[in-house]
Simulated assay, not measured.
Amino acid sequence: MIAQLSEIRNFWQLSDQIATAGQPTPEQFPAIRSAGYQTVVNLVPSEAANALPNESAIVAAQGMEYVQIPVRWEKPTRDDFSQFATVIQGRRHQPVFVHCAANMRVSAFMYLYRRLYAGVSEAQAASDLHQIWIPNPTWQDFIDQVIADQREIAGEQVVLRHQDQL
């Protein structure tokens, strides 16, 4: 019997193309494939206690692409998010299943991605994030820094465009 997606810890369907969750069990990956997901993105470092050994082989056996971006719980980085955004942006026209241990890393990254790349309002992105958790100080600082960096980059682009017109 194939497990249901709703049985996966903290499963959250953000759109027709993106679902997020905590760590699936090996028995839950057939349901992910059956639901049409073509890529599984895992944000759990391999050495984490709750990481699934051989997840890449389990996903490959289901005929899906596997991408791992190891995000340390206690120290997420802008580079982690940049890699994540590149992966999601490159697969924005296909179904992607994104997970971590409890859907906390993922929900924070999806909050940022949706705000910065998908044009989702802050209110909607925050509402979805808060369905999973309220970020702790480490993660809230990370979110704030990524948004501030993006605003700074956007401001520099506006200045450069203005200078080109002079």
Rank of each mutant, 00 (worst) to 15 (best):
A60G: 06
Q163V: 08
E74D: 14
H93L: 07
E27D: 12
L14I: 09
A148P: 00
E156G: 04
V158A: 15
S6Y: 06
Q165M: 08
Y66H: 10
Q150D: 15
Q145K: 11
I69P: 00
Q150T: 14
L166Y: 02
F84V: 02
T86N: 15
S82Y: 05
D80V: 01
T138W: 09
A31T: 01
H93S: 09
K75Y: 10
P45F: 03
Q68V: 02
A108F: 07
D16R: 10
W12S: 15
G155A: 11
Q124G: 09
A125T: 06
A125Q: 12
A21Y: 03
I88T: 08
E122V: 11
V44E: 01
S107M: 07
H93V: 01
I32Y: 02
D164T: 00
I134T: 13
R9L: 11
G155H: 10
H93Q: 14
T25A: 06
D16I: 01
R105A: 06
S15Y: 06
V106D: 02
L129N: 07
N103V: 05
V106Y: 05
P76V: 05
S121A: 10
T86K: 15
I32G: 01
Q140S: 12
L43D: 01
S46K: 08
H162T: 07
T138K: 07
Q157M: 14
P137A: 14
I147S: 00
V146H: 14
M64K: 02
R161Q: 12
R161L: 09
D141V: 15
Q157D: 10
V44G: 00
R114A: 08
L112W: 13
A125F: 09
A48G: 02
V87E: 14
N54V: 00
A60I: 14
P95R: 12
A49M: 05
A49V: 14
L112Y: 13
S34A: 15
L116I: 05
L116M: 06
F29E: 01
E65F: 00
P30M: 04
Y111L: 08
G90Y: 06
F84P: 03
C100G: 05
F97W: 02
Q38V: 07
N136K: 11
T25W: 01
L52S: 01
N136D: 15
V106C: 11
E152V: 12
D79S: 14
N103I: 06
Q150M: 07
I153T: 08
N103Q: 03
L5F: 06
T86I: 08
I32L: 03
V40F: 10
Q13E: 14
A125P: 01
V120H: 15
D141N: 12
P70C: 05
A51E: 03
E55Y: 02
A21I: 04
V44W: 05
H162F: 09
Y111T: 04
A35M: 12
V120K: 10
E156W: 10
A3V: 07
